[in-house]
Nucleic acid binder design. Sequence first.
DNA 1: CCTAGTGTTATATCTTACTAATACACAATA
DNA 2: TATTGTGTATTAGTAAGATATAACACTAGG
Lengths: 128, 128
Amino acid sequence: MKFDDKIPIYYQIKNYIYGRIITGKLVPGEKIPAVRQLAVDLTVNVNTVQRALSELISEGILESKRGLGNFVTEDQAAINQVRHKMIMEQLHAMYENLHNLNVTDDEIVQYLRQYIKDRRTNKDDQHN
Amino acid sequence: MKFDDKIPIYYQIKNYIYGRIITGKLVPGEKIPAVRQLAVDLTVNVNTVQRALSELISEGILESKRGLGNFVTEDQAAINQVRHKMIMEQLHAMYENLHNLNVTDDEIVQYLRQYIKDRRTNKDDQHN
DNA sequence: CCTAGTGTTATATCTTACTAATACACAATA
DNA sequence: TATTGTGTATTAGTAAGATATAACACTAGG
């Protein structure tokens, strides 16, 4: 996995797991991969994985069962809340940063549409 | 100034100055505040400011004149490029992150419109 | 020439993030 | 009950970011 060197790895792992749960690649009640396996998959240290998982456990997104593994919460409402929270965080960060560059609301929407359009074109070019 | 503790301060200062230049609060050829003054204003260490400025100088956005100060480049084209680059970076980061949450292109646009709408409403409520 | 204001560099110290290695605690099962 | 697979904790070491402090280099103006 590629990490942004400007953001702590444990934090990026946390968001990665959020994503896996939100998109249903990990379903409620499912056991997630073992910490040592995750460490290998993500090519990071066990302790770094553990730090990410600890926070997810504190937040109630994961449930730890010693000797058995870590499991996705059965609380679908909590998952939905996380999804909404993450979407809002993304929009907020982008909005604030663009406003600081004097980009207006309308321009933000326009730029986004153009970005998506361009992205689709480039995707076709690259046969992805 | 409030900093995000997940991102290096020097990097946030760099982006802050980009913003000041892009929005015209600092105009081409203008002298920016002294490093020691910036350190006070931003409540960080001189070396941290210097690190941010060094990168901006390397990139040709600022010009250093020892004994005189640091000055905004007269190269308006370079400034325009930075503005465009920053806008694209913001859109790209947000887009990638939302796609990883299974949010479709159309949904991204819809969520953004809703966010802007809600933001305006809340702004009125708070009399800002 | 001296001083004040500026950019630049250097040293030491502290904290956080990450890694490596090891050990401990618990559960399932052969 | 011994082994294997799991989560958890500890200790030590490295590196990056940030700080405090100080010194050095250059410019302008009295």
